[in-house]
Amino acid sequence: MKERPILFSTPMVRAILEGRKTQTRRVLNCDHPVVTGFIPNGTHYWQGTAISKAVEQQYISTFPRVVKCPFGAVGDRLYVRETWSTHACFDDILPRNIPVRSIHYWADGEVKTGKKRSSIHMPQWASRILLEITNIRVERLNDISEADAVAEGMIADDDYCAEEYFSMLWNEINGWKEKGWNANPWVWCITFKVIEGGAT
C-alpha cells in the first residue's frame, strides 16, 4: 500500500468534508483516435483496446497498449492537497519549518491571515484528509451518470441536474477545449472512502 498526493479545489474539499464526494475524475493522457476502451492489465496498469486488429496494426508505432494509473491501485491511499495558508509571521518560512497549529485551510472559510499557498505546494505532513481508493475504472467523461455526478459532490436543483453542474465545473477546472466536456476525454474514475479527516 502506498500513499500518493491528489489535488482538490476548495469546493471539492468542502464536499469531501461534508461526506458528499466519494468519486473524482482525472484526465487519462491518451487521446489516440483508434482507442475504444481500456481493460485492467495488472494492479496499476490498463491496456488500451482498438477499433479492430487491422486498425491496431496500422497504428502499431503509436497505439497506447498500456497506460499506468498515476493514482495507484485499489487499497492505495491518497493524501489530499488543498489551498492553505499560515499565520502571517510564517509567510517567508519554508514549509518544513512551519508548526502544524499555524495552518489555515481555505475550505474552512475565509482566511484573514497569511499569504495564500497553492494546493500543489502542500507538504504531506500538512494534509488533513486521507482517502483510500475503493475502485478505479476508465471511461469517457460524458459517460458519467446522474448518480456518479452526485458522488462527485454535485447537488441538483430546479435549474440543473447534477450531471449538468458537473459538466460546468469540469470546464471551469479543465478548460473548454482539448480536455473540456465536449472533447469527451478518457478519464480515470476513482472511487474512494475517507480514512482520516472529513466524514469517515
Rank of each mutant, 00 (worst) to 15 (best):
G153S: 13
R77S: 01
P95G: 01
P40L: 01
Y165P: 00
Q57R: 13
K2E: 12
E172D: 04
N182L: 15
V138D: 01
L130S: 08
K193T: 13
G42W: 01
R77W: 01
G48E: 06
Y160W: 14
L78M: 01
I129W: 07
K112H: 03
P99K: 02
A151W: 00
T113F: 04
V55D: 13
E152N: 09
P185F: 04
A183Y: 13
T191V: 10
V34N: 10
M12K: 06
I60V: 15
R140K: 15
I155W: 06
N142H: 14
S118N: 08
V55F: 11
Y79A: 11
T134C: 12
D158L: 11
S52C: 07
Y165G: 04
W125K: 08
K179S: 12
R117H: 09
E178T: 15
E172V: 00
M168A: 09
Q58W: 01
I98V: 09
V194T: 05
I195L: 08
T134P: 09
I190Y: 13
D148W: 11
G197H: 08
G37N: 08
V35N: 05
W46E: 01
R65Y: 07
M122K: 09
D143K: 08
A107E: 01
A183R: 13
N174V: 12
K68I: 00
W106S: 04
G198K: 02
A15T: 02
P11D: 07
I133S: 04
A149V: 09
Y160T: 09
L17E: 03
G75Q: 06
V100A: 08
R81P: 06
Y45Q: 11
R77L: 02
S52N: 06
E18H: 03
T113K: 09
I190E: 11
P99I: 15
D143S: 15
D158F: 05
V34L: 06
P99F: 06
T83A: 13
G114M: 03
T134M: 07
A156T: 10
